[in-house]
Amino acid sequence: MIEWSTATPAIGSAFLASLVEVVEAFTIILAVATLRGWRPALAGTFAALAVLGALVLTLGPLMGRVPLHVLQLVIGVLLLLFGMGWLRKAALRAAGLIPLHDEVAIFARESAALSAEGHTAAGADPSATGARSDAAARSTASQDWIAGIAAFKAVLLEGLEVVFIVIAVGAGRGLLLPASLGALGACAAVLAVGAAVRKPLARVPENTLKFGVGVMLCAFGVFWTGEGIGLEWPGGDLVLFLLAGLFLAAGLLAAGLARQVASGAPAEVAR
């Protein structure tokens, strides 16, 4: 029986976090598809999804063997490390100290990088006429390979974060399936909108989403860590909502104080 007080934040967090990650991966896939066509883009994407699927199938059964308290503690600490990173960065972005994520700029940068690598791959221009068509075919294959690898890398790296979030918010209470559905819902939403507009999804309020997800991940992190070290939270799972409210206040305070401290400081590149 699903406890909705835990399932709702778990599904919501998995959906929103996946939305952010899938939007980032989609930008790279779109750049690859625009420059080299959908074949290398989809090949790289599906290869990465296969690796991620294998990872989940390998890790999933292993987690069932770990004692629940140990699993909660490990996942709780990892969630704190991961979620606080997101919350701190989102607060600094909200304070104007590091620039906002710009999908259009990333699309342009990725396209330029792929073009440059494509020109390098095509650079070996043979002088012999007979070898020219062979060399052209090799050059096209090489450019497609580079483009496919770019899509593979983007999906794998963003997908790793999605897999971690799904496992982290779902494993502690047997909510892997609802959390996975949340993540799949985000993939479907981004793909549907992306297929319709066929350009980077720059209007997704990424920092607001990251702020919200950071808040939820920190709340889950404190909750699981507490359960892992043997704490019994008053109100049980419902304390998640209180923790989320407190982390939201802390994140807003962090953004406000950071803005105040560095008032007038120009934005610099995010690390």
Partner: peptide, 8 residues
């Protein structure tokens, strides 16, 4: 997060 955002 507050302390480390302010430190940054």
């Amino acid at each position: 997060p507050v302390v480390f955002a302010v430190a940054y």
